[in-house]
Nucleic acid binder design. Structure first.
Length: 554
RNA sequence: AGUUCAAUGGUGUAAUGGUAGCACAACUGAUUUUGGUUCAGUUAGUCUAGGUUCGAAUCCUGGUUGAACUACCA
């Protein structure tokens, strides 16, 4: 009965391939370079590659594209593995491009033997100069016509470490006048006397991306090699190597990378934010990294649902961060335990409640979950309530406290505001009200109906915690597209620390990564910075607030 | 300027020559012991000019706009 979900262009290609019998089983791969942390864009690619394998009963490899020893580190490998698992995916095989260095070397020799590759002694500058430009064909290098034997010997000498970095390169012999600059005799091997995170000092020559990626796909019999749009110009080269090497014909398909409003996504820019201390690290809760979002309190399910809803296509895009937040709220609404916390406290004194009396009230943990159970919350004469829940001169539709106004205290009683006290600066210091004993939650016989319910924390029962409120990292929707440096658009108020928030006692038992909804205030999670004596909560996302909207209009 | 790719409500994404749909956002209203949730509803779109066709978002041609490509990065 359910409406059939439409296919994206890759699913269509796959279904056609499967139907035509081109493949019995599809095989995809997620191929990160271990030179940084994964972000929401990678999540999109992970969800795509692993999701396709799952949907079509295929396989998906994790392959680290580690062909540049100077940028890659084991630390990144570990974080990438961890993030993928956290997102809920398991790879069929874990491979490294560096596993294939010997094979890749042999492929290069094959190309030389076919007269399709040569060693070039030109400097980097000379190569760039002879490359031509978008409108000018390039010129052949003087070393282009060396004999096969000479090339073989020189390439072997390169491997043996006879030359310094930059002294020689191996180039594919294609066409220096090709309109696609990438086919103007691309460099396929370069000399780097550098320590590799896995192969150590075994090699001093390393294959370039173009000479490693397609061949790695081919070695692994990847059927659908999915990458982002900027590699579209590489596809002819990808195909050329496979054709000339006569190896398993993997195919490359490109989709548009996922951009989000109010953030940046390029690794280079994210690295700058980290290095220049605009954020506390890769896992700063404001970062669009998987680790940052996890710390912020986003759930893996929310991220997966987001990726699913946003879909994929081939056009440039920038998705509203609000869509991600929607799925975070949707997931957390179903699962997060409710609790009460007063961020900006002011005291409410219930004048007709006995001085020494306290009560243990039972309040539901999650109204969305019938089996969620209840918790005990202490109640007494003096309560903390939110400063913004009281107004001296309340407007028409203000359903909170003000002189003469009535509200229900969540899970407790209905109170009427009678009086309030101010200091010499006009700040409210105390609010006084009286309660109706017969209006107790769950056994209300008062017959009174109130429009508003507010949260509260009993003063003698309260614990304290630090709360970190996050706003968007940038002031503009698309910082990367703005004039000038993207960093000039950083929102300097993206982190607001509230050092002492009044929380209900049950929150003292919170554990890192646990999700809560602080009633009426938003979703929060315990930050790893917390200790036994000092609790720190991150605000994951606010609740939707139609009152705030109403006020904005006024 | 060359090459390549793309263009559907504010945003993202469907419709595969035959009723332009879905989600988010926005806006109404109802329900609500969270101004949350839930429910009902409203607004809003095929870049442009031609062509093919009984019929075009879809195919063709021109234009416009955007993106990518000139790293010994991936």
């Amino acid at each position: 009965m359910s409406a059939e979900k439409s296919l994206n262009f890759l699913e269509e290609i796959i279904e056609n391939d499967l139907a035509a019998g081109t493949y019995q089983q599809i095989h995809t791969r997620f191929p990160p370079e271990p030179n940084g942390y994964l972000h929401i864009g990678h999540a999109s690619s992970i969800h795509l590659n692993f999701g396709l394998a799952l949907k079509y009963n295929g396989k998906c490899n994790l392959r680290f594209d580690d062909t540049n020893p100077v940028t890659e580190e084991t630390e990144y490998v570990d974080s990438i593995r961890n993030d993928i698992k956290w997102l809920g995916y398991n790879w069929d095989n874990e491979f490294y491009a560096s596993d294939y260095f010997e094979q890749l070397y042999a492929f290069a020799q094959t190309l030389i033997r076919k007269g399709l590759a040569y060693v070039d002694d030109s400097s980097s500058e000379e190569i760039a100069a002879s490359k031509g430009d978008l409108n000018t064909p390039g010129k052949n290098a003087p070393y282009r016509d060396r004999t096969i034997e000479e090339n073989l010997a020189l390439f072997a000498a390169m491997r043996e470490g006879k030359y310094k970095d930059g002294e020689k390169v191996l180039r594919a012999k294609i066409d220096m006048a090709h309109p696609n600059l990438l086919l103007r005799d691309p460099i396929i091997y370069r000399i780097k006397h550098a320590h590799h995170h896995r192969t150590g000092d075994q090699w001093c020559i390393y294959p370039m991306y173009d000479f490693a990626h397609g061949q790695s796909d081919s070695i692994e019999h990847i059927t659908h090699s999915i990458c982002t749009l900027e590699f579209i110009h590489h596809r002819p080269l990808y195909d050329w190597f496979i054709e000339k090497l006569e190896i398993y014909p993997s195919h490359q398909y490109e989709f548009a990378r996922r951009n989000l409003t109010y953030t940046v996504m390029s690794k280079r820019k994210l690295l700058q934010l980290v290095n220049e201390k605009h954020v506390s690290g890769w896992d700063d809760p404001r970062m669009p990294t998987i680790s940052g979002m996890r710390r912020r309190g986003y759930t893996a399910a929310a991220i997966r649902n987001f990726c699913d809803a946003a879909g994929i296509a081939k056009r440039e895009n920038i998705v509203d961060i609000g869509l991600l937040e929607h799925f975070v709220r949707e997931d957390l609404n179903k699962t997060a335990l409710r609790a009460m916390a007063v961020l900006d406290p002011v005291k409410l004194i219930i004048t007709n409640y006995p001085d020494s009396k306290t009560e243990e009230l039972e309040i539901e943990n999650n109204p969305e979950d019938e089996n969620g159970g209840k918790r005990k919350v202490g109640f007494s004469k003096e309560l903390w309530i939110e400063r913004e829940d009281f107004m001296e001169q309340p407007p028409k539709k203000f359903f909170r406290l003000g002189p003469g106004l009535q509200v229900r205290l969540k899970g407790a009683y209905i109170v009427t505001c009678e009086d309030y006290k101010k200091d010499e600066n006009g700040n409210i210091t105390e609010i006084y009200g009286s309660y109706y004993p017969e209006s107790k939650s769950g056994q209300d016989t008062s017959g009174i109906h109130v429009k508003g319910t507010i949260h509260w924390v009993s003063v003698p029962h309260a614990k304290q915690a630090e709360v970190r409120l996050y706003d968007r990292l940038f002031k503009v929707e698309n910082p990367a597209a703005e004039e000038g440096n993207f960093k000039s658009y950083i929102n300097e108020n993206s982190l607001q620390i509230v050092p002492s928030v009044q929380i209900e006692a049950s929150l003292a038992a919170a554990i890192t990564g646990q999700h809560f909804q602080f009633l009426r205030k938003g979703y929060f999670t315990l930050d790893p910075d917390s200790s036994e004596t000092h609790l720190v909560f991150n605000r994951t996302v606010t609740l939707k607030d139609s009152w705030a909207k109403e006020q904005k209009k006024a």
